[in-house]
Amino acid sequence: MNLALRLTDRKRESIVQAAIAEFRDNGFEVTSMDRIAARAEVSKRTVYNHFPSKEELFSEMLQRLWTRATAQPDASYRPDVPLRDQLRELLGAKMKTLGDSNFIDLARVAIGATIHSPERAQAWVNRLNEREEAFTVWVRSAQQDGRLKAVEPGFAASQIHALLKAFAFWPQVTLNEPLLTAEEQLPVVESALDLFLCWYEIKTAPVKA
């Protein structure tokens, strides 16, 4: 990669970071390309060279949010592993995302910007819902293996994710509460597992000798 290209990439990144900061501090409607350029310490022309409009910048920000949200370990169902162990691994990865300050900042900006645009809000919510599709597939596989009760898989997936978000997403995004520490995350995950498995797991009778 040549020096000019690296410089271009650095400028683009500084513009994106400046946009995120401006959206966070002032909201989507108030933020202007002039303010973004000033914060990034580049010319307005440079901003427009990278992003033709504020909407394009916002789309870039949502893409980053989406990328962070979709980072996850293998979510394949494993018939030879206890359900609780598999779920703990999946929820642990989810909590790692929810404990990322950059992710929370992006989510806060995105939600704030979508308040005045139902269409934009719906598109964002739809993409986050797609993020949980891997867990939905896991639930369906466990059902087919006879280990979870029959229920609409997407409904069950939304339930367990909501149990985490009630403590590790919405308070931070809407009320600016601090991120949960690793110690604080643990009981949230374990209690979510208790509730989910208590209701949905099919208990098999012990085999008599």
Rank of each mutant, 00 (worst) to 15 (best):
P82Q: 09
P79V: 15
P82L: 08
Y77V: 08
D74I: 13
R64L: 11
A71D: 15
L65Y: 03
R68K: 12
L65Q: 06
Q72V: 05
D80P: 03
M95P: 00
A71I: 15
R88N: 07
W66I: 15
Y77K: 04
R64E: 13
R78H: 09
D74S: 11
R78Q: 14
P73E: 12
R78G: 04
R84G: 06
L83V: 11
Q72L: 12
T70C: 14
G92W: 03
L91H: 01
R78N: 09
R88K: 07
P82Y: 02
P73A: 08
L83K: 01
D85N: 12
L65C: 11
M95D: 02
L90C: 02
D74L: 09
A71K: 04
K94G: 08
P73Y: 05
K96R: 10
M95T: 00
D80F: 01
K96I: 12
R78V: 06
R84Q: 13
Q86W: 02
P79F: 12
W66C: 10
E89C: 09
A75T: 08
A71T: 14
S76R: 11
P79L: 14
G92F: 05
M95Y: 00
L91N: 01
D80A: 14
L65N: 04
V81R: 05
L83A: 03
L83R: 00
T67W: 10
P82R: 02
D80C: 09
T97V: 13
S76K: 07
S76W: 05
W66G: 09
E89H: 06
L91I: 10
Q86Y: 01
W66H: 12
T70M: 14
D80T: 09
D74C: 10
V81W: 03
Q86N: 07
G92Y: 04
M95A: 06
T67P: 02
L87D: 03
R64T: 03
D85S: 14
A75Q: 13
Y77L: 10
S76L: 13
L65T: 07
A75D: 14
K94R: 12
R78S: 09
K94P: 02
E89V: 10
E89K: 02
T67Y: 09
T70W: 07
A93W: 01
T97I: 12
L83W: 00
D74K: 01
R68C: 10
D74A: 12
K96L: 14
V81Y: 05
Y77Q: 07
R78T: 06
P79G: 15
A69Q: 06
R64I: 07
R88H: 08
V81S: 05
P82W: 02
T67Q: 15
A69M: 09
Q72S: 11
R78M: 11
W66A: 12
D80L: 11
L91Q: 03
V81A: 06
L83N: 03
L65R: 00
S76G: 15
K96S: 13
A93M: 07
Q72I: 05
A93S: 11
A71L: 13
K94N: 11
T70S: 13
L65S: 08
A93F: 02
D85V: 15
D80Y: 01
L91A: 02
T97A: 12
L91K: 00
T67K: 12
A93L: 05
A75V: 06
V81C: 07
R64A: 05
D74G: 08
K96G: 11
